[in-house]
Write a protein that binds this DNA or RNA. Sequence first.
DNA 1: CTAATTTCTCAACCTAACTTGAGATCAAGC
DNA 2: GCTTGATCTCAAGTTAGGTTGAGAAATTAG
Lengths: 164, 164
Amino acid sequence: MAKSAGVSIGYLAERTGLAVSAIRYYEAQGLVEPWRNAGGQRRFHRADLRRLSFVMVAQKFGFSLPEIHGFLKSLPGGRTPTKADWARLSEQFRDHLNARIETLERLRDNLDGCIGCGCLSLPNCKLYNPDDAVAQNGQGPRYLMGDRPSDLTKDGNRTPNDDI
Amino acid sequence: MAKSAGVSIGYLAERTGLAVSAIRYYEAQGLVEPWRNAGGQRRFHRADLRRLSFVMVAQKFGFSLPEIHGFLKSLPGGRTPTKADWARLSEQFRDHLNARIETLERLRDNLDGCIGCGCLSLPNCKLYNPDDAVAQNGQGPRYLMGDRPSDLTKDGNRTPNDDI
DNA sequence: CTAATTTCTCAACCTAACTTGAGATCAAGC
DNA sequence: GCTTGATCTCAAGTTAGGTTGAGAAATTAG
């Protein structure tokens, strides 16, 4: 059970293709927890190679680093994902991915239904529904196309075709 | 043909749901081009309501502001999109969306094929293919999981099961 | 032993799409 | 005329996921 010499950050960088700076950043985010050698340099477990690979795959599936942190913490003892862990986690991955695919398909279908409908001017346009937002940028616009519900009832004297 | 009084930035903000600051930002990006009144305040064409709506929809479909700028500039005379313009542009939107959906589906299918395969350790894992990246963040890791091709041939003395 | 690599820390920079704040001016209602 | 409220400019801040650079110390190669 003696703690082996461990591997250097440069080794992990070379093996994973990650930049050294990225690995340090991941440490800052709590995704890996190296110890230090006598000279103050980071030493990693060999298993961190798998851990970092897991991070890379999870990122590819659209998870944020905090979410990935959550996955890793959810493992018994915070261990590096094993084959069995991976089988369980990959289900979550697929659900996540399916949800994203569905959102995009709904958006596409609404677009199809909107071609030639004069769309951009209609309050009842399906693209109007804010809940269907792709929502990949947290701070995007809150409404899609004017006419908040209260607007129409409050403002009586507009010439209908004057707007938009 | 006299230039009408135009509408204020606050009016557009209220009608579109955009923040005033966002509309100013869009102006800085060249998406709208208001003129100024005597007091130096911005005045917009009513048609800019449709123009901004177009920007919002296009964003929802995953286009960047520079790309949207390109769409708007491509219109005859740089005009605000008409119904016919919209029909043409929406085809591009759909193509864009379909491409994104396909990428995600490929990723999901590769995941399905990988469950239980011990995946994260195999250089021939399908998730390894860098070209399949979701690529929504421009500066993600360049390789997925260690073992760059040259690595295996160069480094002769590794114990196979020692890695990852 | 010396030179060349690595690694260290820490702050600053990067992109995208905005927001926030300060301090000043403009426009509108009474 | 006066007081709100809207608008103005311009710089700086925000989030995510890192990168870059400076200057110093550790490690490795020969």
